[in-house]
Simulated assay, not measured.
Amino acid sequence: MIRIDERAHIVASPSSWIEGEAERQLRTTSGLAGVRWAVGMPDLHPGKGHPIGAAILVDGIVYPHLVGSDIGCGMALFRLELPGSKLNAERLAKRLRGLEGTWEGDAEAWLRDRGVVDPSFVDALGTIGGGNHFAELQAVHELAEPSAVHPLGIEKKSLVLLVHSGSRGLGESILRAHVAIYGAKGLEVDSTAGRDYLRAHDRAVMWGRANRALIAHRFAESVGADLHPVLDVCHNAVTPHDGGWLHRKGAAPHDQGPVAIPGSRGTLTYLVEPTGDGVSSGHSLAHGAGRKWTRSDARARMRDRFRAGELLRTDLGGFVVCDDKDLLFEEAPDAYKRIDRVVADLVDAGACRVLATLRPVVTYKIRKNGRE
């Protein structure tokens, strides 16, 4: 554990690399009014004023900036059943398309069936978005705890789909509306403004879950697969906890069962199970590997070393679908920290145990219309 001040620490070993700016931002966050404690995950890295990869418990106040613009962003894991006995990843990658375009189905009905009555941003429903979002077909690499993953329907030969996305423009509109009136100020939970924000926040969280489910549905439909939900965990949200309000920005909950923690498109995803009481880890787990380089640094560094086409295959043999060259460089595996180190820090802290590792087969980011 790395101690920052009396109210803040990072769940990481001294050998893990944490940027000084991320530590500074966590210290600043711990000094906000009402903050009881602030805990950084091993993937902690700098954000816009406040760090990403952190859990912050606040008494009586909600801070929209500590949740961010992509309210409800999270990871959903599905088991896929493909027809036939042999997986042809390259052929499958060519069949995938359209996950950035408007869904032709009844988006409002899809939302209503999942408890979302506000039809806002329906044109974006079922789309992945940019940044570090993705839909990734994965194969089981290793089962560390076979008996624990059996109830999830995952076996050695299973194929799974991991979807990382959120509430798209809806979450951003909620934060923008707050900033337009209140700037970076927090809101008293019992105030009219606080209650309004929490209602909008909860709607965005539900919208995000519905979005991940539709992305998975579209992916499975493209490849002719059957789809079976395994888990859906949100990592950008604020929830009641121990008499206060637990803000998570890039941190998965510790009390909702197994969590998928991806590294990058070129590294393994870890399926973990929370252990212990969660106190030392802020009742949270890491949500990924965390960025090592900024997007501009990643573009510059990777362009000096690779042509874009060379990044469409990974060291693990996976195929990458990404027609945006900037995004291809920005999201290169080298731009991220070591996922094995992140997970090892969590395990050493007693926060989780590894159930299985998953290997990327096809990572879908964006395919421009008309690309064959």
Rank of each mutant, 00 (worst) to 15 (best):
W17E: 15
Q25Y: 09
L32F: 03
V35N: 02
W37P: 06
V39G: 01
H45T: 06
P51F: 08
G53Y: 04
I56P: 02
I56A: 05
D59T: 10
D59E: 10
G60N: 12
G60R: 05
Y63M: 00
G68R: 08
A76L: 04
L80I: 06
E81N: 02
S85Q: 15
S85E: 15
L87Y: 09
A89F: 11
R91S: 15
A93H: 10
K94A: 12
L99A: 04
D106A: 05
L111S: 01
D118C: 03
D118N: 08
P119D: 13
L125A: 07
I128A: 03
I128W: 04
G131N: 11
N132T: 08
A135Q: 07
E136Q: 13
L143W: 12
V149A: 03
L161C: 04
L161D: 01
V163A: 12
S165M: 04
S167L: 07
I174Y: 11
A177T: 09
A180D: 14
I181W: 05
G186C: 02
G186Y: 03
G194Q: 05
D196L: 14
L198W: 01
N211L: 03
R212K: 07
A216M: 12
A220R: 12
A220C: 04
E221Y: 04
A225D: 00
D226H: 13
H228F: 13
V230A: 09
D232Q: 06
V233K: 09
H241I: 11
D242P: 05
W245F: 14
I261R: 07
P262C: 06
R265H: 04
G266F: 00
L268P: 01
V272A: 11
T275D: 15
G282S: 14
S284V: 06
K292M: 07
K292I: 03
K292D: 05
W293A: 13
S296P: 02
R303L: 03
R305F: 13
L312V: 13
T314E: 07
L316E: 12
G317Q: 04
G318W: 00
G318E: 00
F319R: 15
V321K: 06
R338E: 02
I339L: 12
D345M: 10
L346W: 01
D348I: 13
C352Q: 14
V354T: 11
V354L: 05
A356M: 00
L358R: 10
R359W: 08
V361A: 04
Y364F: 14
